[in-house]
Design a protein around this nucleic acid. Structure first.
Lengths: 343, 343
DNA sequence: CACGGATTTGGCAGCGCTGCCAAATACTCC
DNA sequence: GGAGTATTTGGCAGCGCTGCCAAATCCGTG
């Protein structure tokens, strides 16, 4: 008998140690489960005395609510799926920061996946996030596989596609025209009188937004009757080192260039450093233009001419709109050409 | 009668349009739910013919599995909670990238939250991630509220604390000694003969790791019988601009400094740029030392002397260990002093 | 002090899936 | 050809919570 009693006691202890559920809390508080649930969600009505009893029991038992069960019962989660191509380009952490500003106060959690600029991988991660029935999706860009588009469209969750407005969106689109951004950069260089222009950026198969900017850029040069741009395309991630090497190779092949447009300020600063190292005078011998308006470029010895992109705002507005649940819409945010001393 | 039949038909259609469940798939395939579940999870045994029937039904109905229900039934999610203080310091995106390398192949999703260097906020986000019963936690640093530590310890989930090994961990710890890192930087400057050293970094209340480095740094100077270091403490995020301004202020107050130690390469590069702008010769008039081994510093006109930190490796190893579910352990990774031309 | 309405509380079904076990079917060997 | 084993399949309970509705309690009034 005694041993049995001991065993039961042990079991009870183990049970408690294992997982504390709403039922345990309600038993401890001497209340019904629904009452406890109401108190914990601060939803519906209950007396202050009840609230206190619940909180006391929660505290004593160390109860942690189970949102998996809660979400199943109420068919709705507080998860927001975010899908970006990379973390190595500052644009995307900035986007995430902006989104966090809007989502955190609403008590939403972010499930974040990285695709490495691969639409197949994008499809895979969106499918697996979808299995968590997120409240909304934020995805970078407008280019997806057919299946991904269908999945997002038919799922019923709100989707915001961010950064780029050149194309057909699924639901909400927040960004700016990448093509226009490229055109603005080209106009600037053309106006300043540069005529033999080179380009350093990622391979086009890689980043569709860089390609759109390049196309826009090229179209302005063509309009001005200028020769097609010389390009140095890069595989790896955006960095100072790579930009420096890329400019060196580009100049070796095309000694007569008078300006180079870089698809990112990281690259551009690398290019600028190359010029300093080689004694190439900027901008008189070679003009350097960047893209993104990174701090590092703005406060270089010669401030870099670049184009400030509103990436944090895009993240924030995208997150806000996707939760406010209105109809589909396109929001175009302004970019700003920052004239530095390198062009 | 006809109207009733119509209504039922409508209902059936609505039902199907609304949410396709495992039950719908099993009905369409003419199989039991458990069989379909087994096929979809590729778990247990079934014939190839069965597999094909299931896949066909899944395709036709556009079934998306519900991991909320699955996780509730099997009491275990494929979510990994990641908690970092900020996204504005490159260290943390790098950490996330490293973690993704280890987690993605295992089919794990990341729930990421940012604390803004606030232990209360950290507690809040860890509590709410815990409600999703994550498979594991990755958190930056060892400094938490008492409650957070208790929650993590008692929850039974594996926890890896990343970046810092100076202190008591909860479970797995992966990083390096921040104190030692600071000491290594100080030794380098002392060896080179610098004697009046300044420091630029974030407010100490802010970032406990920066404080530990600073303490290690100071201890070496004290050992060498040198005067206490002059400091310029900063509120905002790490950036070139801020570093530039901070150095200016620091030098205005302390004209005799012969070296400045920056808590981040962003700051340090800003400082370097300030020197260039003011015609201060580096390192003969003023030595500049950074921290983190960022690309931007390595490929500046004068390569920055800095200390390379293995942050992506920390993320990757932390993620790997936390999933391999062995006992508590501390992994110390090496940092590397990179001698540039600025000291 | 009984009465009607407002407030507070409890019971129970069910969200969609998985784990367990038993049943059905296929296959092997003598 | 039938017992014995291996493979494949189905049924059902239950994971922990919420939504709905009914029951209980409280309160001010006539």
């Amino acid at each position: 008998m005694i041993r049995v009693a001991h065993r039961m006691n042990d079991d009870a202890i183990n049970k408690q140690r294992k997982v504390v559920t709403l039922r345990d809390v309600s038993a401890a508080a001497g209340l019904g489960m629904s009452t406890v649930s109401r108190v914990l969600r601060n939803h519906g009505s209950f007396s202050q005395a009840t609230r206190a009893r619940v909180m006391k029991a929660v505290e004593e038992l160390g109860y942690v609510p189970n949102r998996i069960a809660g979400s199943l019962a109420s068919s709705g989660s507080n998860l927001v799926g975010i899908v970006i191509p990379s973390l190595h380009n500052i644009v995307f952490p900035d986007l995430l920061s902006g989104a966090a500003v809007a989502l955190t106060p609403l008590g939403l959690q972010t499930v974040i996946s990285v695709t490495d600029y691969d639409v197949a991988q994008e499809q895979k991660v969106i499918e697996s996030i979808m299995a968590w029935r997120p409240a909304a999706f934020l995805v970078a860009g407008l280019e997806h596989s057919e299946r991904t588009r269908a999945l997002l469209k038919n799922s019923g969750v709100r989707v915001a596609e961010l950064l780029d407005t050149d194309g057909e969106g699924i639901d909400i689109v927040v960004g700016f025209s990448q093509r226009e951004a490229g055109m603005a950069c080209a106009r600037h260089l053309v106006e300043r009188g540069y005529r033999r222009i080179g380009y350093v950026g990622p391979h086009f198969s890689f980043d569709p937004r860089a390609r759109k900017r390049f196309d826009g850029f090229s179209s302005i040069l063509a309009e001005a009757g200028m020769a097609p741009i010389e390009t140095e395309l890069i595989d790896g991630i955006s960095s100072t080192e790579v930009g420096r090497g890329a400019l060196e190779r580009l100049l070796a092949r095309n000694p007569g260039l008078d300006a180079v447009y870089f698809s990112n300020d990281d690259f551009a600063v690398g290019g600028l450093f190359h010029c300093y190292a080689e004694g190439i005078s900027v901008p008189s011998q070679l003009a350097i233009m960047g893209y993104n308006g990174l701090d590092i470029g703005r406060f270089a010895p010669q401030p870099l001419t670049t184009l400030r992109t509103p990436r944090a705002e895009i993240g924030e507005i995208g997150a806000r709109l996707v939760m406010e649940s209105r109809g589909p819409q396109v929001v175009n945010l302004p970019f700003e050409l920052l004239e530095g001393e390198t062009t």
